[in-house]
Design a protein around this nucleic acid. Structure first.
Lengths: 339, 339
DNA sequence: GTGAAAGCGCTAACAA
DNA sequence: TTGTTAGCGCTTTCAC
C-alpha cells in the first residue's frame, strides 16, 4: 500500500497523488476527487518514515527528564507535549533517572536522525560532557544547573526565586530559617543556586546564616525530605522556618513535623519550590515558589523550532529566564477562617 | 555522512560497512578494524530513519494517556517507558485530555508507520470507534473501561478491587459508605466498574446501598473530589466512610473534611484507589487500592512486542488482569503511635 | 568474506 | 496541471 498503488488505482502518476496528499494547490478538482476516491477505497495512509528519510525531518523532539514519578517533571512533560503539539511536533520521552551516564547517552546521538531536537533537564551532567557532544540535533537545556555552553538554556532565575522565598519568611519574623535540600558531596548539584539565594537573602538582611541549618538530603523526593528533616531535628536543631529545595522535600518534612507534634506554620513555617498541585490539597497547603512551567516548556520547544527553521544561520546562544511567583499559602500564613 | 562516505574512506564496499555497523559475525578482524577507524574518524552515526524505512520497524511505540498532570498516568507512563526500554523500544507520548475526538485521532493512523504499536488508556472512546479503526499497528488498551473488541486489554479486576476496599470499610464497622466519583450523565465512564463493586459488596453484606451516598464528580482531580465531597455534606448527608474513585478525589475530599472539622478516620474513614506516592505523605496517610502499575506497563509492552514478533499469526485477543493490593493506612486505621 | 545493485515509499527537480 | 525520475541512507539478496 503505497503512493504507487493509489496512483495505479486512480490512473494518475505518483506525483499527482503526492500533490493531493500534500494539499498542493494546483490540482484540478476533478483529479483531486478521483485521487481522493482511490485513497479512500484503498485506505491509504502515507508512510511517514519514508517522508522522514526524504525530508530529513521527522517532527519528533525528544524530552529527557530524570523521572516521571516526580510530579514536577510529569507536569513539565505534559506542558512540553502540549507546547510541541502547538508546533505539530510529537514528543519522544526518555528517563535519565538522574544518572550521568544516561544523561550522556541521551545527548550522544540518541535516536540519531529520528529526533529533530532534544530537550534535556540534566541533574548530573557536567559541562565537559556536553562540550564533547558530536550529535548535531539542536539541544536545549532546562532546569537549574548553570553551564557555560553553546546551547540555549531555559531556567527561571533560581537565586532570585530563592531570595523571594527567604524574604517572605523573614518578613513573617522568622530568623532561624533552615535550608533543606543541600547535597554536601556534590557542589554543582541543582540545589546549589537555591542555597546561594538563601545565603544571599539572609546576608542582605543582616541575619546570620547558621550553617548548621543547611540540612542535606539524599535525593529529591518526599522520603528524602522526611529523612533530612528528621535528621535535623534529631541533631537538636530547632528552626522556626524551613525553605525546602522543592515541594516534595517540603511535604516529606511536614509529615515528619506532624508526627513529632510540631505545628506548621505556628512552630515552623515552610516554603517549597515548584508549585505542585499536590501542595494545594494537603491538610496544610504549601507556600511555594511557582516557576512558570508552561513558559519553560514553550520556550524550550520554540528554541528548537527556531534553530531548525534558521537554515544554517544559527543565532547566538540564549539564556532565557521565564517568570516565577511566590504562592503564599497556609504553611506560612496559617489557615484562614473558612468562608 | 552516510555508509557510502565511510565505505569510501575505508576503501571497502557499503555492504562491508553495514556488516560492521550491525555486528555481523563473518568479517575479518582486519577489515572490521579498518572500517571502525573510518567510522570513528568521520564520526559516523547510522541514519535510523533510513533503517526504519528499509526494515518497516522503528522501535517506537506510542503511549496515549489522558494527561500527565494526573500522577497516576505519570507514574504509569514512567513504568511504560522503563518496560519499553527493556525491549529496546522508545516511547512516543501523547495526550488525549480525556477527549473522545483526540482518543479517536490517536487510534486512527497516528504517526502511521513510525510507531510500531500503540498503548492507549481511553476514557471516552466507545466500542464502535475502535471497531472502525483501520490502522494495523497493534493496539493494546489499558485501564478500567470494558470493551468487547479484538484488542488486548490490560486492566486489574476493578470490581474485585472495589469490593476489597468496601469490605475493608465494612470490617471496620462502617455502614454508611459513600461512593465518591460517579458520573451520572455518562454510564459507561471508567468509574462504573468501581461503583458496581461498591454495590456488590454492600449487597453481599446485607447492607442497604443508600443511593444518596453515590456522589457525583465533574472530573477526576483533587478539585473535583473536594467539590463532590462538599456537595455531599451540603446536602446534609453524613457518611461514616468514603470510597473514592481514585486517590486524587480522596485527597480533595479529605481536604474539605479537614476544613469542616471532620476527623479522618474517626468521623469518616477514607479509601482511595491508585496508590499514588502522594497519598503516603499527607497529614493522614491514605488507605488505597494499589494496582500493580509495573505489571500493567510490562504486560502492555509485551503484548505489542509479541504481536509484532508473531509474523502474521496473530494470537487470540487477551484480557489480562494484573494484581492489586489494599494498602491499609491512617485514613482507615488511624495514626499508630510513632515508633 | 566482500561487492554490486535493487528497492523500502516518499518528495522535488525537471520535463512535458 | 501532471508525469518521469533521481535519490534520501539503509539492508539484503545474489554473485563472486
Amino acid at each position: 500500500m503505497s503512493l504507487k498503488d493509489v496512483a495505479a488505482h486512480a490512473g494518475v502518476s505518483v506525483k499527482t497523488v503526492s500533490n493531493v496528499v500534500n494539499k498542493y494547490q494546483h490540482v484540478t478538482p476533478a483529479t483531486r476527487e478521483k485521487v481522493q476516491r482511490a485513497i479512500d477505497a484503498l485506505g491509504y495512509r502515507p508512510n511517514l518514515t519514508a517522508r522522514h528519510l526524504r525530508k530529513g525531518r521527522t517532527g519528533i523532539i525528544a524530552l529527557a527528564v530524570p523521572e516521571l514519578g516526580n510530579p514536577y517533571f510529569a507536569e513539565l512533560a505534559g506542558a512540553v507535549v502540549d507546547a510541541a503539539a502547538a508546533h505539530d511536533y510529537t514528543v519522544l520521552l526518555d528517563h535519565t533517572q538522574g544518572s550521568r551516564e544516561r544523561e550522556l547517552l541521551v545527548t550522544q546521538g540518541f535516536r540519531a536522525r529520528v529526533i529533530d531536537g532534544l530537550i534535556l533537564n540534566p541533574l548530573e551532567l557536567e559541562a565537559e560532557d556536553l562540550a564533547a557532544r558530536t550529535d548535531d540535533a539542536p539541544l536545549v537545556l532546562i532546569g537549574e544547573r548553570r553551564y557555560d555552553l553553546p546551547h540555549d538554556h531555559i531556567a527561571i532565575d533560581n537565586i532570585a526565586a530563592a531570595r523571594t522565598a527567604v524574604r517572605h519568611l523573614l518578613d513573617l519574623g522568622r530568623r532561624r530559617i533552615a535550608f533543606l535540600g543541600a547535597r554536601g558531596d556534590r557542589p554543582s548539584q541543582p540545589s546549589h543556586l537555591r542555597l546561594l539565594g538563601w545565603q544571599a537573602e539572609l546576608a542582605a538582611s543582616g541575619v546570620t546564616a547558621d550553617e548548621a541549618l543547611v540540612a542535606p538530603v539524599e535525593g529529591w523526593d518526599r522520603a528524602d525530605g522526611a529523612a533530612g528533616m528528621a535528621a535535623l531535628l534529631d541533631a537538636g536543631h530547632r528552626p522556626d522556618a524551613v525553605f525546602a529545595y522543592n515541594d516534595l522535600i517540603a511535604i516529606g518534612a511536614m509529615r515528619v513535623m506532624s508526627e513529632r507534634g510540631l505545628r506548621v506554620p505556628e512552630d515552623v513555617a515552610v516554603v517549597g519550590f515548584d508549585d505542585l498541585t499536590e501542595g494545594r490539597y494537603g491538610a496544610v497547603t504549601l507556600t511555594t515558589v511557582a516557576p512558570d512551567k508552561q513558559a519553560i516548556a514553550r520556550l524550550a520547544v520554540e528554541s528548537i523550532v527556531e534553530r531548525l527553521a534558521g537554515e544554517g544561520g544559527v543565532g547566538a546562544t540564549r539564556r532565557l529566564h521565564p517568570g516565577f511567583a511566590l504562592m503564599e499559602r497556609e504553611s506560612t500564613l496559617g489557615r484562614r477562617p473558612a468562608n
